[in-house]
Amino acid sequence: MTTHTPTTPEQLLEKLTALGIEATTINHPAVYTVEESKAHRGDLPGAHTKNLFLRNKKGKMWLLVCLEDRKIDIKLLGKALEAGKLSFGSAARLMEFLGIEPGSVSPFSAINDREGQVKVVLDTQMMTQSPINAHPLTNTMTTAITPTDLVRFLESIDHAPEELDMNNLAELATKAE
């Protein structure tokens, strides 16, 4: 693995601008949980995300981006993704592969996975809402972007996302068996 300096929030926002993507960013106190985010964001419209950095026993990794209030059954998710048993990636792994600290995980952090080792999975229901709000590599800011532009950004960094119908995890897990 090669080590590299993680992208800064400013560099990320410059990348969005260079792609012609309109994004609105606000500053706020650091937040580490969905509850803290709700307390600080005020009336910010759109979908707000919960982001899970996951791995399996074989070392494969996923970044799940879903609606903030989504309840996730990790066992069913592992089956639906055909990943086997999933667990949360450590803070060290998070820094190594996504270049961020816990609390700052978002779909934008895929920009630091320059070797394409983390698969991005987006909640199908989240993708029907606009804008989508996510941290731009720091938990002291929130950036709003359209679902179409989020996909365009991810494709531009060679992380074409997979969409997963989180409302039907049990059905998807059964089909995968």
Rank of each mutant, 00 (worst) to 15 (best):
H4D: 11
T5N: 12
T5H: 11
T7L: 11
P9W: 03
P9Y: 07
L13T: 11
E14N: 15
A18K: 13
A18F: 06
A18S: 15
G20N: 08
I21H: 07
I21M: 11
A23K: 00
I26V: 15
H28I: 08
H28P: 06
H28C: 07
P29W: 05
A30N: 03
Y32S: 12
V34R: 01
A39Q: 15
G42C: 10
D43F: 08
P45R: 09
A47S: 15
A47P: 02
A47Y: 06
T49M: 05
F53S: 01
F53M: 08
L54G: 05
N56Q: 06
N56D: 15
K57G: 12
K58Q: 15
K58R: 15
G59S: 06
K60N: 13
K60H: 14
W62Y: 13
L63S: 05
L64K: 01
C66V: 13
E68M: 11
D69E: 14
D69W: 01
D69H: 14
R70L: 11
I72C: 12
D73A: 06
I74T: 12
A80K: 00
L81Q: 02
L81M: 06
E82F: 00
E82D: 13
E82L: 07
E82P: 00
A83T: 07
S87A: 14
G89D: 02
S90E: 00
A91E: 11
A91W: 03
A92R: 09
A92W: 00
A92T: 12
R93P: 00
L94V: 05
M95E: 12
M95G: 04
M95V: 01
E96D: 14
G99F: 02
G99I: 03
G99Q: 01
I100G: 07
I100Q: 00
E101M: 11
S104P: 01
V105C: 11
V105M: 06
P107Y: 02
A110R: 06
N112M: 02
R114P: 01
E115P: 02
G116Q: 09
Q117G: 13
V118M: 02
K119D: 10
V120L: 05
V121H: 05
M126Q: 11
Q129I: 14
S130V: 08
P131S: 10
I132P: 05
A134R: 00
H135T: 11
H135N: 10
P136Y: 04
P136Q: 06
P136K: 03
L137Q: 05
D149N: 15
L150K: 07
V151G: 02
V151N: 01
R152E: 03
L154Y: 05
D158T: 12
E163M: 15
E163H: 13
E163Q: 15
E163N: 09
L164V: 10
N167M: 09
N168K: 15
N168D: 13
A170T: 04
A170H: 12
